[in-house]
C-alpha cells in the first residue's frame, strides 16, 4: 500500500467535516465538524512528515493541536454564553445581521 492513501483519507475526512459544518445547525456539532477538519489536516501533516522523512510535519500537527485546544475552549465558552442568552445553540438563530 502506498502511504499516499493516508492523504486521500485525510481529504475525505476534511470534506466530510466541511460539509458537516455547512449542513448542521447545532453549534456544538458544527464545532465538532471543525475539529474533524483539523484532525484531517493533522493526519495529512503526519503523512507528509513520513514522506519527507523529517519531523517538521509532526511539529506543525502538534501546534495545530494546541491551537485547536485553545479554539475549542474559547468556542465552547461562546456557545455556552450564547445558549445562556438565547436558550438555543442553533447557528441559524444567531442571524441577527440580516436586514
Amino acid at each position: 500500500m502506498n502511504p499516499v492513501n493516508y492523504l486521500y483519507l485525510a481529504s475525505l475526512l476534511f470534506t466530510i467535516g466541511a460539509t458537516g459544518v455547512l449542513i448542521r445547525r447545532n453549534a456544538i456539532v458544527v464545532f465538532m465538524c471543525v475539529e474533524l477538519m483539523l484532525n484531517a489536516c493533522n493526519l495529512a501533516l503526519v503523512a507528509f512528515s513520513r514522506m519527507h522523512g523529517n519531523l517538521d510535519g509532526q511539529i506543525i500537527a502538534f501546534f495545530t493541536m494546541v491551537v485547536a485546544a485553545a479554539e475549542v475552549v474559547v468556542g465552547l465558552a461562546i456557545i455556552v454564553s450564547l445558549f445562556r442568552s438565547r436558550h438555543s445553540a442553533s447557528v441559524d438563530d444567531a442571524s441577527l445581521m440580516k436586514l
Binding site: L13, I16, G17, G20, R24, L36
Partner: peptide, 8 residues
C-alpha cells in the same frame, strides 16, 4: 470515515 459521517 463511517465515524466521520455519523458525526455529521
Amino acid at each position: 470515515v463511517i465515524g466521520a459521517l455519523c458525526t455529521v
